[in-house]
Design a protein around this nucleic acid. Structure first.
Ligand SMILES: [Zn+2]
Ligand SMILES: [Zn+2]
Ligand SMILES: [Zn+2]
Ligand SMILES: [Zn+2]
Lengths: 134, 134
DNA sequence: ATAACAAACGTTATATTATAACAAATTAAG
DNA sequence: CTTAATTTGTTATAATATAACGTTTGTTAT
């Protein structure tokens, strides 16, 4: 049983539902506008839900875009090891699931003697579709 | 000759000087306050300088912190391949210079058929000093 | 040198992203 | 039940970043 099942509060569930059915990453204020019909009125309610959802690994933040995407991998170790591919043209974002990569990075040590507990990697380029269009 | 030497404008030079002599990453508005004595008055002047400096690889943005750090590597391919180690406790940030890592990531391909032109990797953990203090 | 173009500048206003502070309500645990 | 912890609702504000506009400076080609 790799799936971590937490009980989510009302607001957390509302925000997660929206992010999960979205095609791409969503920004906080776009989330806010889309959940106002469900009673969430203020930015802070969204940010608090986001914070919790990130903590339990249900979503990830795409740092370069200030946007939030649902985790599709059941085995992201609670968002401690994330990698994304981002298309510079259409902005399509996809979480990379590659065990060699995650193993390589999780075990990475540099000469500083620092052992890393978490990493976030963002790759940029052109996706297959946009490459053809060029 | 790996060093890329561009002519910098006045504002760009002022901002770069500040970032280069800083011990760690600086935030945009902290930069602004520190260069006001040199005649830079508005956020946009700072952001424009930052944009250019990033473009030519003199500085990098630490996305998870919205902060800017000078590039210490002469061979960052104009900021197309960056990796940082970040201490969660003291916030110390250091650019990782590791040719195996950069080679591995620059050549990385996943099953999506996307070839990556750029990446940014941020590692988090405790630095040597903070580890001892725990 | 001067026209034409590109890059950088200065300035004001505004957009976007995120958190502080505090009190009330809900939920989990003993 | 009761106590503690979490979540909520709300208002205000902080922090980060860009739009729009006109001017100035630097570069390139005649
Ligand atoms: Zn994930
Ligand atoms: Zn694309
Ligand atoms: Zn660098
Ligand atoms: Zn430290």
């Amino acid at each position: 049983m790799t799936q971590k099942q937490e009980h989510l509060s009302k607001n957390q569930q509302i925000v997660l539902n929206l992010i999960e059915k979205a095609k791409g990453p969503l920004k906080a204020y776009s989330i806010l506008y889309n959940v106002q019909k469900r009673g969430i009125k203020a930015p802070l309610q969204v940010y608090r839900a986001l914070e919790k959802l990130i903590e339990i690994g249900k979503i990830h933040k795409i740092e370069s875009k200030n946007a939030f995407i649902a985790c599709k991998n059941s085995d992201c170790e609670i968002s401690k090891a994330t990698a994304f591919s981002i298309c510079n043209n259409c902005e399509h974002v996809k979480e990379i699931k590659n065990s060699k990569l995650s193993k390589y990075l999780s075990n990475f040590e540099d000469n500083s003697g620092m052992k890393y507990k978490k990493y976030n990697l963002e790759f940029f380029g052109l996706c297959k579709i946009c490459k053809l269009k060029q």
